[in-house]
Design a protein around this nucleic acid. Structure first.
Lengths: 274, 274
DNA sequence: AACTGTGAAGATCTTCACAGCA
DNA sequence: TGCTGTGAAGATCTTCACAGTT
């Protein structure tokens, strides 16, 4: 789950569980697709299948919003689209700034799913003066110096950070100081923010690591059941119950082949021109 | 949480809870940073702060891996880095293919966090013949026709889909047919895969929608406590308990200003050149 | 004294299964 | 009959608080 809030832990706004909120956009997408095909109603079963969840969960989720279905029939597609949009706050306009216009920032700027959901990209910001004025997704990139004016003029409350890790906290601090209270962070860092500011993060590499974990399992199971294409899992000296993890206990071999490749980049996505 | 598995629901491989697995990469990153600063040991408190979680949770998480700490002292950084890497399967090499080399695909290809974590980008694939041969992140983009050869030759078991929504399922099916068993999906679609294949998804717009939900709440609370900069929340005819959601019950006004802007793109990220 | 490891309590989330309504 | 809405049971996750270890 490339995902996580930072403050406001158990608050559970207005009684809708977090887990439910996280699924509403899923339902909304599925419903929008149905709406475009002019389907008038759906059953919980059908909609659940389209959204990739199970139907009991979906019904329970909807029950937190109110009784918007009709027994024996299902849900009115248009009506539900509206109710969920409203619940998510998508019936209003959300100006957003994207800071850090590398490949990722550009991808975000071009992402069609934003405009169609009530999000309006108010500005693209980059610290590199050479980027200033360049058109990305049909709008000129602006320099960081413009940040204050842009945020104030547009009433921006949501910021997207797509800078390298090193710049993220600094950008975050500036955004917060200018009144931004929700941040979507793509940089691989933990941002610290004051109470009342929400941070969600999307981490490209974390998702892959979680996949690797499960993939490794599969390979293991497979091996114990029959060879197949199991990758060569080299298992160096693994103390089952290391009594004393003395300093330097890590095998000299260390994590296989780590140091190579990308220079001392470490965690920073080479996504933006500094 | 831009995140979700598809099959294998309650299996919980080898007893490590999913929630814990999802945090291991976080700890690993924090530990790597400490390691680079040559910090020899950390307490659960310090590490938890660096990873953005609470310390009891961290200790509990580590307890599933084994007793790798030293009471009264803390955890040996190098040792933990190794143990977590091993647990996540990062001590082996994971060749990965990225399909769909638009802005997003390019961003992923350039992402430094992969190479440094045992992931090796084996190939960049795009369906557009015009892309073939173009260098991205120092390697030539290859045409979809090469997929079979590439996957077989490299023993790829993890695929990344960064295509438009419309192409995603088809690409997914091909990957699965060629033996890929883990998929990281950036396209805004629900992929259906056979048993035994893991799918995780990252959805850029879902995260924003979740933020909007909370932002809306804040604005609401704020208004009831004192005006401030609350955005104009227009609340059109909202039946508190709609007795009969008859077809067409959706307000004529509908979700405010949806249709405009991006043409009939709908959900598709304008990220790839078809 | 300092800090880990972990039972147990509590919170949240999921799933079941069926009452109730159209 | 068909499908929603929901109590209740079950599963999972988080947090507390303290025993155990160095």
């Amino acid at each position: 789950m490339a995902t996580g809030r930072t403050h406001r832990p158990a608050t559970r706004s207005r009684g809708i569980p977090e887990a439910t909120v996280a699924r509403l956009p899923l339902y909304l997408r599925a419903l929008t697709a149905l709406s475009e095909r002019s389907v008038p109603t759906v059953s919980s079963e059908e909609l659940a299948a389209a959204a990739g969840v199970n139907s009991a969960k979906l019904r329970k989720d909807f029950s937190y919003l109110g009784s918007y279905g009709t027994r024996g029939v299902g849900y009115d597609v248009e009506y539900l689209v509206y109710q969920i949009s409203r619940e998510l706050g998508l019936t209003q306009d959300w100006p957003v700034v994207i800071v850090g216009i590398g490949n990722l920032g550009a991808a975000l700027a071009n992402y069609g799913g934003f405009a169609s959901r009530g999000f309006r990209v108010a500005a693209l910001i980059d610290a590199d003066p050479a980027m200033a004025g360049k058109p990305v997704a049909g709008m000129p990139v602006q320099h960081t110096d413009e940040l204050e004016r842009i945020i104030t003029d547009n009433g921006v409350s949501i910021g997207v950070i797509a800078t390298p890790a090193g710049a993220a906290q600094q950008v975050c601090d500036r955004l917060v100081a200018l009144g931004v209270t929700s941040i979507l962070n793509f940089a691989p860092t933990v941002l610290s923010v004051p109470e009342g500011v929400d941070v969600r993060k999307v981490d490209l590499s974390i998702e892959l690591q979680i996949l690797a974990f499960h993939e490794q399992r599969k390979a293991g199971e497979e091996t114990s059941a029959g060879p197949g294409t199991a990758p060569a899992v080299s298992t160096p000296a693994t103390p089952a119950t290391p009594a004393a993890p003395a300093a330097g206990a890590a095998p000299a071999a260390g994590p296989a082949g780590r140091s190579g490749k990308g220079g001392p980049d470490g965690d920073v996505p080479a996504v933006m021109p500094a």
